[in-house]
Write a protein that binds this DNA or RNA. Structure first.
Lengths: 128, 128
DNA sequence: GCTTGACCTGAAGTTAACTTTAGCCTTTAT
DNA sequence: ATAAAGGCTAAAGTTAACTTCAGGTCAAGC
């Protein structure tokens, strides 16, 4: 039922070194080891890792993700705090989507008008 | 008609040190100086800086932005190359929007179901 | 029995994008 | 005339998120 670090690496497409790094940084406090010290990833560990990647890919820094994990470990009393963190991250994600959407408009405008625009015509974003 | 580095800093909300850094890294090859050496930003320079910020904020690394600038300086022969760069960046932006949108679904799901989810229920993103 | 492959650690190295520091010049207000 | 404000440079320092390296353990196959 458990996976080696290499198996997880292949499944999630993350280098082994990164998985060890995340563990070292305290992002995997529930990860089990064999007697010798080999990491044993459970399904739950993998799910948590997928969440870590998702949050990280969308701009949450690792230390915040770690704090979130820390709150989870502290129990139900931190539920509100965790909700607040997620709300804050949601705002951040919404802002990014907005910024990207406007950037897309600018790129499309440039692509559509490229031939009309002079070589040195370095114009401002279309929305400004 | 020209602006000092401090004026540009205030107008664009970028620290003076960053503006100098961009210049040093070759992102402002057309920027004029006074006899002594003080930078003189024109409207065009500011427009270019706004574009730089926009591309940078949406994930284009500075060295790619610099390459783009380099192509601009080389003249009309690089037009196709520049189009290709913009198309590539557009793909990247679209991918980011997609990733963020899916992340948003996950966050909303978690927020909606937070009370039902156990303390240690660290579940995978909703789309997986 | 020994080599190969997978695992481990701690420490040092890397990259991008800045920021800070130290030291120096010039213009402007008192 | 002198001190404050703003400009400059080169070089060193910072941070996040990794990667690489050196050196060592263990299990399996020949």
């Amino acid at each position: 039922m458990d996976y080696t670090i290499k198996q997880v690496s292949e499944r999630l497409g993350l280098p082994v070194s990164t998985l060890r790094y995340y563990d070292k940084e305290g992002l995997m406090p529930l990860l089990k080891r064999t007697d010798y010290g080999t990491r044993q990833y459970s399904e739950t560990d993998i799910c948590w890792l997928e969440l870590v990647c998702c949050l990280k890919n969308n701009g949450m820094p690792l230390n915040e993700i770690k704090d979130f994990m820390g709150l989870c470990l502290e129990g139900a009393s931190t539920c509100e705090q965790r909700k607040i963190m997620l709300e804050k991250h949601k705002e951040h994600v919404l802002q990014q989507i907005d910024s990207l959407t406007r950037s897309l408009d600018m790129i499309n405008y440039k692509l559509d008008h490229y031939d009309e625009i002079g070589i040195f015509h370095i114009d401002a974003p279309v929305h400004s």
